[in-house]
Design a protein around this nucleic acid. Structure first.
Lengths: 154, 154
DNA sequence: TTTTCTGCAAACGATTTGCATACAC
DNA sequence: GTGTATGCAAATCGTTTGCAGAAAA
């Protein structure tokens, strides 16, 4: 349970928040906790989170969900993922360099999204960081094309 | 004018359209032409296109712009780019393997987007195509982090 | 002629915002 | 206490859709 994630804990959150002058509210704690508890789910949308909160009998409003997701992303605790399906999704930013990075093949015909894993970009990241002064926390790679089914129909 | 782009021409468009059972309409031609004429602009949104059409005294409606951009993307003539700023952008899919691929550094604090160029992924693409049966037409790489200015303020 | 396409306006859905209240510090 | 955060509802904005007329094939 504990060896494969240094997932974000309550204390880490408190620290990051106060470090940036934000308040440590129960809503922010609870929303982050959902990502920790559902770390198998990959990329949840604001509505997904809101639905889970409802199931948990939580009173957190949808606007707060949006505001918290924004904030947690800005702090680098979550990362945004976008499949072009019209809603932003979020996932825990696993900062472990050994962690799987999963990326996406997106079919431009049927819009199917296929996940795959790779770890090729670390070297490139270092290079960019050095040249641009950019501190990279995460990367996202998408390949666009036709999936095998759509190719068969062409 | 002609040596550095095998940009899409009227005949190419006609061919791709009829090949897929779509009609060759002046609206589609005109919208594609805007991308050819503004190939320096990189990633234009539906509204950008609509604005240019208006300046050109064209009567094409916004809904048609959206429908055409969708179609041209599905045909692999355009590709979608998404910066997480709430609107989808499009650009010509330069199929020349020697062409610059430009990718993006996105600051999670100030949302600034910085372009950079690289050509590293061709090998990876071949590998994926082989294993998955996916025909890759384009790829998109985004790095998320803090830009040098935001880092300075932290 | 037949089917697809267009333009318009209305509908939609994700996200944001204003504001009064509640809460973290 | 003081300023930030929350919850609600209304507003916003990009995008999609229904439909009747127009135009490709």
């Amino acid at each position: 349970m504990s060896e494969n994630h240094q997932l974000f804990g309550t204390e880490d959150l408190r620290g990051k928040l106060s470090e940036h002058g934000y308040k440590n509210t129960p809503q922010r704690k609870e929303i982050l906790q959902i990502f920790v508890d559902h770390s198998d789910y990959h990329h949840m949308s604001a509505e997904d989170i809101y639905k889970i909160l409802r199931e948990n009998k939580s009173e957190i409003g949808l606007a707060t969900v949006y505001r918290s997701l924004d904030l947690l992303s800005e702090l680098g605790i979550l990362v945004q993922v976008d499949f072009g399906d019209g809603c932003t999704r979020y996932e825990l930013n696993n900062t472990d360099p050994k962690a799987h990075r999963h990326h996406h093949l997106i079919c431009i015909k049927c819009k199917k999204v296929i996940e795959f894993e790779e770890d090729l970009l670390d070297e490139l990241e270092e290079d960019i960081a050095e040249k641009s002064g950019f501190q990279i926390l995460n990367h996202e790679v998408k390949f666009f094309g036709y999936c095998s089914e759509c190719r068969a129909e062409m």
